[in-house]
């Protein structure tokens, strides 16, 4: 474990807690894409299939359980909670996430480290995570005003993978010089997708104005 990875995990955890807090405290999920949240559940389920089989550390296991639990409960709130589900606007959250799931799955079958169930699912989860934010970013572009919590949520979500990129650089030079193209390139693409959001987020923060993404 290194400081970059810990910072990344804490940023990721904070983003999820922020979202869960918004949903529970405001009883609203306005501006949040259910499609993206469902993709994250798929990402965590397919990545943590080895949760019951392999034990790395208490930290690793507890964080996997927390990520699984929180992401599933966010989808539950948005789909089934009698008050919250009224605030979900499915007419604007129209991104067909099957167009992300299928290509990522096919790609994981073609490009992976080993053609085993665990390895293909793990690879699929990395590819899917890289593009999972797209429905949310499309939704933000359609939203006239983005509330601060949602903006902060997306910012932290993008920042976490940027910390992971630093963690991978650290691990490569300091630890074991092993090349791992799949996580590296997926993580790079994931962070790149946030680039224009980061630009507008920081601009709105500096100018103290409302966050607005160009349509």
């Amino acid at each position: 474990m290194n400081a970059f990875r810990l910072a990344g995990d804490m940023t990721h955890l904070l983003s999820i807690i922020l979202l869960l807090h918004k949903i529970r405290a405001m009883k609203s999920c306005a501006g949040i894409s259910l499609r993206t949240q469902e993709l994250y559940v798929i990402v965590f389920v397919t990545r943590y299939v080895d949760l019951s089989m392999k034990y790395y550390s208490f930290y690793n296991s507890i964080m996997k359980i927390v990520f699984l639990g929180t992401s599933i409960s966010i989808v539950w709130y948005m789909r089934y909670h009698k008050v919250v589900k009224q605030t979900y606007n499915k007419d604007v959250d129209t991104f067909r996430h099957i167009f992300l799931i299928l290509p990522c799955f096919v790609l994981a079958l073609l490009i992976n480290r080993a053609f085993t169930v665990i390895e293909v699912l793990w690879t699929f989860s990395l590819y899917l995570e890289a593009v999972a934010i797209l429905p949310q970013l499309v939704l933000l572009q359609r939203s006239r005003n983005i509330d601060n919590l949602t903006g902060n949520y997306v910012f932290l979500l993008g920042a976490y993978r940027a910390f992971y990129l630093l963690n991978w650089i650290y691990r490569f030079f300091i630890e074991n010089h092993q090349v791992r193209w799949i996580p590296w390139l997926s993580g790079l693409l994931q962070t790149a997708i946030y680039a224009d959001f980061f630009y507008y987020y920081i601009k709105s923060w500096k100018n103290r104005e409302k966050l607005k993404l160009p349509a």
């Binding site: 080895d50 996997k64 793990w122 092993q178 996580p183």
Partner: peptide
């Protein structure tokens, strides 16, 4: 082995 040693990440 590469893939297993890197599965310690979240």
């Amino acid at each position: 082995e590469e893939s297993s040693s890197f599965k310690d990440e979240l």
